[in-house]
Design a protein around this nucleic acid. Sequence first.
RNA 1: GCCGGAGUGCUGAAAUUGGUAAACAGGAUGGACUCAAAAUCCAUUGCCCGUAAGGGCUUGAGGGUUCGAAUCCCUCCUCCGGCACCA
Length: 836
Amino acid sequence: MYNPSKIEPKWQKTWEKLDIYKAKDFSRKPKMYILVEFPYPSGEGLHVGHCRSYSALDAIARKKRMEGYNVLFPIGWDAFGLPAENYAIKTKSHPQKTVSKNIANFKRQLKSLGLSFDWSREINTTDPKYYKWTQWIFLKLFEKGLVYRAEIPINWCPSCKIGLANEEVVQGKCERCGTPVEKRIKKQWMIKITAYADRLIEDLKKVDYPEKVKLQQINWIGKSYGTEVKFKLKKSHYLPVFTTRVDTIFGVTALVLAPEHPLVNVLTTQENKEKVKKYIEKIKNKSEFERTKLEKKRTGVFTGSYCINPINEEKIPIWIGDYVIGSYGGGAVMVVPGHDKRDYEFAKRYGLKIKEVVRPKNQKSNKNTLPFVEDGILVNSGEFSGLSSLKAREKITLWLEKRGLGRKSVQYKLRDWVFSRQHYWGEPIPLVYCENCKKIVEKIKSGSSDIKSQKPKFNKGELLNPGWISIPEKDLPVELPFVEKYQPTETGESPLANIKKWVICKCPKCGRQARRETDTMPNWAGSSWYFMRYTDPSNDKALANSKKLKYWMPVDWYNGGMEHTTLHLLYSRFWYKFLFDIGVAPQDEPYKKRTSHGVVLAEDGRKMSKSLGNVINPDEIVKKYGADTLRVYEMFMGPFDQAIAWSNKGLMGVYRFLKKFWKLSLECTSNPKSSLKIIRSIHQLNKQIDKDLEKTKFNTIIAGFMKFVNLCGKNKKEVGRDAIERMLLLFSPFAPHISEELWQRLHPERYKDPEYSIFREKWPKYDPELIREQTFTLIIQINGKTRDKIEVKKDSSQKEIESLTLGREKIKKYISNKKIEKVIFVKNKLINFVIK
RNA sequence: GCCGGAGUGCUGAAAUUGGUAAACAGGAUGGACUCAAAAUCCAUUGCCCGUAAGGGCUUGAGGGUUCGAAUCCCUCCUCCGGCACCA
């Protein structure tokens, strides 16, 4: 009887004792670093979705070990962040406590699945020994001038009185209480990820990611090429405007500024002051949701000022409009109503002129419907009329460039990374604010004090952010103090701000009183470099030893969810590039190959959630049917990268299969040799697995195993030990417990060595000679329709086959007295007679 | 709106350098075993006509290329994912 609850814990214990999955730093074997996204240890426990991707990558890790690789397959905990904080608040227990409790539970669950993680390298982002290095990396970014402070709007829930992360805003409302979210301006730490935008796009060429992921990252970064045009204001001031369609510049009939544009006040004339003020007030009161989702109508107000179009000296009115984004392209747009949909609507609404300056190619008539938004041929554009849009963009930009009125320009949609959170449960930002140092830095900056003669030396970040001073490396980590009240505060400040004792400190630069930064890092911080820490998890001199980094990095295969494409995956690539630039990382890309898994939905097709009561608990499945059943089922359920609903019936099918296989292998071992049919079939399966596993086609691999077991079941007398042994070796990465148990029953003598395990065996190689078929099924078609098939000797010539097939009764009947027009012959595949 | 992906039996799905459509599993139906149920085993199962032999049809819809299309091209519909006033 197959009894997984008996054999599984037994082997899990043995494997742990043998330390069989430990990765060795440095080895003559080739290295293979296989990585799964480390989980956030939630209070709900392990999700069957974790099991899906972890068992799949576990199978790959196990196979690679058997193939002779020195495999690193580590695991850890991403335990900082809002969910942990909220869970702690909900359960009224300190996050430190809940996190360690949840980790213990997760660990037990992962171990009960028999995953081959190297537990000696377990890491935890909330461990001060770990986040010391998260803080260190932040300080390096600061030191190199990539960190700055900016006033940016955050999501503010007026009811809960806290700042919300974007992920917590659902359809413009607070996730918890449903109150519409407002924008509040707050000073935040920013990291200049935009400085790496080009490299983040360019280097995608070097890596093996799904095209979908690459495209999504490229779109997210959103690079567009265009021209910055300087519109003349009064007193030789200029207003720069970015456009990708400089070919339409003769059609400009207004400029529109974002409401938050810095020149709004200057440009508003006295008589328009009141109107503009009211308008901006109205915009501010609109929530972001209303501005983007509900109200697609473009509104605006005239400032009363004009500027001069540099191309033709035309006088252009300057407006303010809510459809212009402040943070993109300088926050100003040239309105070309004839050739842009939004501008057209705006112009119609406010009675602005509409000019046609581009016409479709091959069209001469004047009855052209505007707006015409595609490229075409320029008209009404002075000396540039007649040029194609493409040519005109080039020529006009050049014309402007020569006169100092414009230049080529590149814009990105990617914004800098908002790096501070006003929450408790995160890494403290290792900076202090010192009034005294601020004065000194300001003096240096104003030139009244020479930087070289200054006693305390300031780094680039300190000069860029006057008053903000780095904590010296020797004083890291800045530990998160234990507090009683970790709830978000009414003021929107981090709860750390209330701990006077912690906040007030000595400035490490000048020794005078200073105060600590009380904001913490976002939960993306710790996960942006964790894969490096696995190479050397307990190093206290560096984030990891450079030789170990050089040996293990880059990650050879990284699997994770699609939802991390534009956040975690982009952030961690950015940090790795930065660490490469300062000589810490050995390459400029962290992951060689990325694959992604689909989510596991509930049986009803909806997302699993406690409130819907449709959650599948892996513990129960393991208890009832065993870890092997769960693992194999989750690999079999469907294509790996696709979202799939759970099915208890499907799970049962896999359980039946394992039981069948158990019986078969115990019955068929007295016979040493299998028939050619059986042995050939297992070699074919061997080949299929080698091919399909690289493509993450786990479902077809499991189907292959089932097919083979069915074949054996129908031909029991032909099945021998040799086939079963090979099957066990092939099956072991997918269903490790049952395979090892049956292997032991086949080879009890080998297990006298206490160090022995099936996982110390070599991965079997298939014999290409053996699977080469002598015959094949010839498809006989008439006019492309299959009418007959016969077994034919391989490599038969067309002549041989023609005489063979034309003699057949069935074929004769079809052809009868009709004329054969053409014969199509595909070697070793088919013959097709075209008749009339 | 833009960008990406997909649409195949009752269900999850296989088949992609164009060449046997529906592998494998679930479900269903019938049968064996059983007092009975569970478990197990056997058979059937894309649809239509036919007792059968056999024939016809079939990969979201329509068109095209081809000896031959689930696969390539065009138009359209639907669903999923991402972005969303990015000038």
